[in-house]
Amino acid sequence: MDKTVTLAHGAGGKQTNELIDQVFKKHFSNPDLTSDDAAVLSLDTEKIAFTTDGFIVSPQEFPGGNIGKLSICGTVNDLACMGARPRYLSCAFVIEEGYSMEKLERIASAMEKTAAEAGVRIVAGDTKVAGKGQVDGVFITTTGIGTLQEGVRTSGFSARPGDAIIVSGDIGRHGLTILLAREDLGIDAEVTSDCAPLWECVESMLGVTQDIHVIRDATRGGVGTVLYEIAEQSGVGILLDRAKIPVQESVQGVCGMLGLEPLYLACEGRLVVFAPRQYAEKLVEVLHTLKPSAQAAIIGEVTEDQPGRVVVTTEIGAQTLLPPPGGELLPRIC
C-alpha cells in the first residue's frame, strides 16, 4: 500500500477501495457495516438520542490518545449525557493529501478499540481527500445514535437549588496536553489526555438513581464553561468549593507557570453531574469503582440566589465570582 494518502485515494476508483479495505474495513468491520449505500438498523426502544460532532485537533496524536479516539469519545459521551446507551456511529473523514498512511491506520485502530470499549458499532462511513493545505491533517465527523432508558430525562435546564454538583475526575488534562503539544512552550509535564468513553459511568450512576437532573461532558471550555451554561439554562446559582475540585498536581504546576485557570481547560472524559443531595455520596461511590471516574468528587451545590452566576469559596473563606468564560486560552506571563 502507498505510504501517504493521495488525491487518487479520494477519487472513488480502485485506490479508494484499497484505502477503505485496508484501513477502515480492517478496523471497523462488523455485521452492520456493509458496502451498501446506507446501514439498515433496528432499535428496540421508543426513544433514541441522535447527535453529531466534528473533530479537529492539532496535533492529531497526543499523549493519551489521538483524533480517532477523540472522535468516538466525543459522540458517545454526548449520547451518554442524555442517559442514552450509545449504539451506532457513522464517521466521515476528510484527509489532507500527503497524510501518512501509518498515522491514519493508528487513528482507525484507536477508533476500533474505543468503539469496542464504548459498546458501539461503526455502521457507516465516508472518505474524502482534500488537496494539500486545504485541511490540517485529518478532520473526522462522527454521528451517533443511542437508545434512551425509560424514565431518564437529563437536561441542562433541570438543575434545582439543593442539587449537589459532581465532577467525574480530575480536570483540565486534555486541554493542557494539547496546549503543551501545540504551543512551543518548552514545558515538559507528565500530563496525558483524559479522553475516555463514559457510558459505563453514566450507566452505573443510573443504577443508583434515575433522578439525575443534569449530565454534561466538559469538553471545549472545560468544567467552568459547563457550569456557566447550566447556571444560565436552569436559572440557578452555583457555589463551588475551590479546595474540593480535583486537579492533578502537574496540571496545577503548568497552570501556575502560565497563569491559566484549570476550570477552563478542556476535558474529553469528564462528566459534570447535578443530582439531588441525598444521592451524591452514593453516586461518587459507584463512580470511584470505574477507571475513568476514579477521582470523582462533589465540588459544590446549586443555590437559589445569584442565578446565572458561578461563585467560588476561596481559601480564605471569601466568595468570589468564577471569571466567566473568555474565549481563547492565552498564557499570562508578564
Partner: peptide, 9 residues
C-alpha cells in the same frame, strides 16, 4: 486579591 476575595474581608 480579587481571586481570593480579599476585599470582602
Amino acid at each position: 486579591i480579587f481571586k481570593l476575595g480579599v476585599r470582602q474581608i
